[in-house]
């Protein structure tokens, strides 16, 4: 057991898998000698060699294409996108080739596409994306986004071992800000399982990634007013763990769905719809969505703060639900 950052946990998970299984390799831009833009792959080149830590041209489609082809040959590629925003550059090959492969002809594509997502760091319109909604609508692709170092390691290992393509979203705000105890032992956090980060009886807040911490902070404030918020960290965004959410809603009967991506057509809409469809008779109030505004992510810190949901909005939304 050692305390480490979210970033170190991803690196350790990746390195452990590469050591455990020679089919696992890393591919992406600047991931070799430089160690990646955020240094997630630092040290891997020295340890595993250029054969298994492959730096590429600026060619996102080639990176994913190479990952797909090698996966067909039995490899387990872990492709890094320098910022997850650039997943747009390989959207076609990821969604049309990788994600549909198993359904079309039974050929699985066991690969991980990982990259830093999320804002709060003044990354501006092209370095702050939370693209999960684009891929939630892509059957055949799994999506995970850890919020703790423990989960980061456990989920990267699970993603690498998964027989299907997994989009692994790493929230860059958490890379070095989050630190927790990570076991030395080999473990995985199963894909498809949400977790209750804080139990409460009054209102459920469903969230993930960095917003988990925002929600927990709001929950702390609300507890001062005797409002007990249950915070659910989804961890896996596709396939969604509806059961955990519905069980919580069955208890609290009121729910806020919180995410950092833009509101319209966001994952919150899907969760709210599922709760309404499957848990209608557990609801004592309409599900509430809290998300970012329907604009590109702005650069200026003040603008970005106004763009994203924060503690205040959560406290207000929960307060309204309590009064409802």
């Amino acid at each position: 057991m050692a305390e480490m950052t979210y970033l170190e946990a991803i690196r350790q998970g990746l390195a452990e898998e590469m050591a455990r299984d020679e089919r696992v390799y890393a591919i992406g831009e600047d991931i070799g000698a430089y160690g990646g833009a955020f240094k997630v792959t630092e040290g891997l080149l020295e340890r595993f060699g250029a054969e298994r830590v492959i730096g590429t041209p600026i060619s996102e489609t080639a990176i994913i294409g190479a990952a797909i082809g090698s996966a067909y040959l039995g490899m387990r590629p872990v492709a890094e996108l320098q910022f997850i925003d650039f997943v747009a550059c390989c959207f076609n090959i990821l969604t049309n080739f990788a994600a549909k492969s198993r359904y079309r002809w039974g050929a699985g594509v066991p690969m991980v596409v990982r990259g830093p997502c999320g804002g709060g760091v003044s990354g501006g319109p092209f370095h702050s994306a939370n693209p999960e909604a684009h891929f939630l609508h892509t059957p055949g692709l799994k999506i995970v986004e850890p919020s703790t170092a423990y989960d980061a390691k456990g989920l990267i290992k699970a993603a690498i071992r998964d027989d299907d393509p997994v989009l692994f979203l790493e929230h860059k705000f958490l890379y070095r800000r989050v630190k927790d105890e990570v076991p030395d032992a080999d473990y995985v956090v199963p894909i498809g399982q949400a977790v209750v980060r804080r139990p409460g009886d009054d209102v459920t807040v469903v969230t993930f990634g960095a917003m988990t911490y925002t929600a927990l902070e709001a929950a702390e404030q609300l507890a001062q007013r005797d409002v007990e918020v249950e915070v659910i960290d989804l961890r896996t965004l596709s396939p969604l763990d509806h059961e955990t959410v519905l069980q919580s809603v069955a208890k609290t009967n009121k729910v806020v769905v919180l995410h950092e991506a833009q509101r319209t057509g966001g994952i919150g809409a899907e969760i709210a719809a599922a709760i309404t469809e499957r848990g209608f008779e557990h609801l004592d109030a309409p599900p509430v969505r809290l998300a970012s505004l329907d604009t590109p992510v702005p650069y200026n810190p003040g603008l970005e703060a106004a763009f994203r949901p924060g503690v205040e909005q959560i406290v207000a939304a929960v307060g309204q639900l309590v009064e409802y």
């Binding site: 009967n253 008779e281 557990h282 609801l283 004592d284 109030a285 009064e323 409802y324």
Partner: peptide, 30 residues
């Protein structure tokens, strides 16, 4: 009321008109 309240009412044979609502707009809450 709400879907939850209506379900509870049905399950427990409660006539909702008999319940005083304390929620917003006099809504019968859980």
């Amino acid at each position: 009321s709400s879907p939850l309240v209506r379900r509870l009412a049905r399950e427990h044979g409660v006539d909702l008109s008999q319940v005083t609502g304390s929620g917003s707009g006099g809504r019968v809450t859980k």
